[in-house]
Design a protein around this nucleic acid. Sequence first.
DNA 1: TCTGGGGTCCTAGGACCC
DNA 2: TCTGGGGTCCTAGGACCC
Length: 426
Amino acid sequence: MLGLVDCNNFYVSCERSFNPALEGKPVVVLSNNDGCVIARSSEAKALGIKMGLPYFQLKELLSQHEIKIFSSNYTLYGDMSARVMATLGQFSEEVETYSIDEAFINLEAWGNAHSDLLIMAQNLRATVGRWTRIPVSIGVAPTKTLCKVANYFSKRSPENDGVLILDTPARITEALSDFPVAELWGIGSRYAAVLRRNDIRTAAQLRDAPDEWINRNLTVNGLRTAYELRGLPCKMLETEAAPKKAICTSPSFGRLVPDLKTVSEALVTHLSRAAEKLRKQGSAAGTVTVFLHTNRFKISPNGQPARQYYNSLSAQLPHPTASTTELTGYAQALLKTVFRFGYAYQKVGVILSNLVPIDHRQAAIFTDGPDERLVRLSATIDRLNHRYGRDKVRLAAAGYDNTWHHKQQWMSPAYTTRWRDILTVK
DNA sequence: TCTGGGGTCCTAGGACCC
DNA sequence: TCTGGGGTCCTAGGACCC
């Protein structure tokens, strides 16, 4: 059996973990740039606040209710996630960190008896709650997709008390007959529409559909989902995090930016961030892509949609590199080519791809290899910045104007990762 | 009138996830 | 005024090979 442990309203729960005054109140966490709602407490959900609601539309509700608002604090959420995952390690040898707030775990050691599974799962919930103050829900089943279904019901039915175990054909069929197919893991809005047109409305109906039809309409991914619903595992537990194949950094500007100089400085800043991630996983990039675009929601003074511009450009590098300095040269050249004057830009982004392990780089025939001194320089800068703070040492090309930086008006302290933010007990 | 068969590799676009 | 960010995988079609 496998378990899916999912943190309830994770970002809100992180904020509450260090600020108990938020208990029982409607709390929302906003996306980057304080753009829209990405996490809601149950009280906020009860007020009808939808996922993805833009902040400026939320404002109308603020006058009627006392809603607590937070900017995304990923330093805090990432650290709390690591603490939750480490706690899971106490209960299972094999933990797959599936996302910041979810993990699949192997429950082989718990045995197969329903009562044992229930006791262990409740014990796990209680321990995570005690150690991190993060409430979790647990779905237990023979495949990952069925775990997702079990988890869905464990959250929604109070009588399940945060745990649901689907361990017999009868229990599985009962759950699947009640489960909207559009909510299945792997079924998005497009596939949901296809299924609806074919009168497939529950997970049980998809499970029982002919393989050939599923394969034709939902590709092999849909077929895997159907197999998993039948209890045949197709998605294995992956406890080793695979290195990323692409790394992208593209936060929006805090205001619209029209000029090349500012866009370029932002690009260099983003690239520095992406290259840090690149070196952290021990990779070098063979391709750099730069893209930029205007605000697609913007309306002109005359009431018409504003003129839009989106473009991207990639360069294959003569040799893969992990040097911020070297990558910056290419990125700036790409930007000069894609940039058009006369637009107000919302964001510029950079993607590093064709990643290879840093010690297995293919040398180029006709050009010199990467300058090892530049690679060592980047590594040294990483160490300095880790110790003294982000961007303490950086390229001058990143500029000194930070008026374009994204907004984060309601940021909570980094309670667990910054000395001066540690709570004081009076 | 009539024009083979069997492959690989790359890319763009579309689907999905949190 | 104001609408997020960062990923993965699959498929069809085009270009190429002998």
